[in-house]
Design a binder for these strands. Structure first.
Lengths: 110, 110
DNA sequence: TGTTTTAATGTCAGATTAGACATAATAGCT
DNA sequence: AGCTATTATGTCTAATCTGACATTAAAACA
């Protein structure tokens, strides 16, 4: 958020923090979401590198296009468990997973 | 497995491989189990470092003693999702998770 | 523009998982 | 040995997750 905008909002009585504060998440919950989004976007990156459509990948994973779409955006109906299983069946190594987890995630557009 | 024992078994017609082969697991399934066991034993290590009983930890996690016990042995009824959520609410950092995932797991006693 | 392909979203029934409880096994101590 | 604390295992119901389907939105391309 731009500094100016923040000041304007705070002047109007808003308490401006990060998403976790806004949504009243605990640190653990925030970390969970962050982790999920990292795995989600990595799944997309891996699929795109292979030039597969979501349907094609769904076939390989024995899942459906809609679920792959939800995986890639980190939908609430998707568990980290499913993301990890999917990445593993796509051949991701544990080292690769570790790299993804450690990598910093770019903030969403405001 | 000791080399001698392997030879003896093979002489009797056994095809001796790793657990994945024996249980007919795909690479992805084997990696999933391996990952789960790493997280499971790390949970136990973290709990023991804090000198908490399973019941005490269960209280903090809003879970039950029996579930904590199952988490720590990587029971089939426990998802990687639950293990990660538990570790995160115990304050584990993402870097710590990455380290755990990458670390080599000592083989079970034969 | 229209047509086709691909991706996103909503919903739901069946499958899986989680917390809880009971109980058994084990460890630690006297 | 007994007694207590702790851990392990089995089972159940409620909650959550997943694959599937339908539909809509958005790209890609003629």
């Amino acid at each position: 958020m731009r500094e100016e905008k923040r000041k304007r909002l705070e002047a109007k009585g808003w308490r401006v923090g990060n998403a976790a504060e806004f949504l009243q998440l605990t640190a653990g919950e925030a970390a969970y979401i962050d982790l999920k989004l990292k795995l989600a976007s990595h799944l997309r990156k891996r699929r795109e590198k292979w030039r597969l459509s979501q349907s094609a990948l769904a076939g390989k994973l024995r899942s459906s296009q809609s679920r792959v779409a939800k995986m890639e955006v980190g939908d609430t109906s998707v568990s980290i468990d499913l993301l990890i299983r999917s990445l593993l069946t796509m051949g991701a190594s544990q080292r690769e997973l570790a790299r993804v987890i450690t990598r910093h995630r770019p903030a969403a557009a405001g």
